[in-house]
């Protein structure tokens, strides 16, 4: 089974075994299979925030001779 097929099947299995509450949309476990917090909230992993890179310096404007 390819990696994508395996992940897709796993995600469907998870949707089957741990459906979100239709009223609140909350699940009993986190995507990693850990229990959700007391309020039932699921905190998904997020990419670490990074400082926005400074803009590249503008190239010096060349003045072409007429």
């Amino acid at each position: 089974m390819s990696r994508i097929a395996s992940r897709l099947a796993q995600s469907v299995r998870q949707a089957k075994n741990d459906p979100p509450d239709p009223r609140t949309g909350r699940k009993a476990t986190t995507p990693a299979g850990e229990p959700a917090d007391a309020a039932g909230s699921v905190v998904t992993r997020q990419a670490p925030t990074r400082e926005a890179p400074s803009p590249a310096p503008m190239p010096a404007r060349r003045v072409w001779p007429d």
């Binding site: 390819s2 097929a5 897709l8 099947a9 469907v12 299995r13 089957k16």
Partner: peptide, 14 residues
């Protein structure tokens, strides 16, 4: 598409 080819395994979960 890779996703279309991956459907068979996922459908087996239903």
């Amino acid at each position: 598409s890779a996703l279309s080819r991956a459907m068979q395994e996922a459908l087996a979960e239903f």
